[in-house]
Amino acid sequence: MSYQVNGTTVEHDEEGYITTLSDWSKDLAEVIAKQEDINMNEEHWEVVNFLRDYYEEYQIAPAVRVLIKAVKKTMGPEKGNNKYMYELFPYGPAKQACKIAGLPKPTGCV
């Protein structure tokens, strides 16, 4: 199972999470987002970039409540809430946004 991006092949698991984290690129993120029926805009990118920074610092994809709490702290309450996040990523911000961000599935997410 793989994504095709700019002529290269990027392997992913049965749920669509890429298997080698260093394979990620912004173009790949657009490809994954398209498969998730998401049209990446500035708001989506803000969350995806936030997740990548969080992973870089803590080596973990945060659980959804932790993500929302952290977003609230850095981007404010108008973005750090369930409604805003689920509007951007209807199938779950942690799950869907992590997939697009090229991170593993959050621990504890089933």
Partner: peptide, 14 residues
């Protein structure tokens, strides 16, 4: 192998 020591610093969020 993965260095998971930074993850301890995230546990406060949990």
């Amino acid at each position: 192998v993965k260095n998971f020591s930074p993850t301890f610093r995230a546990l406060g969020d949990y």
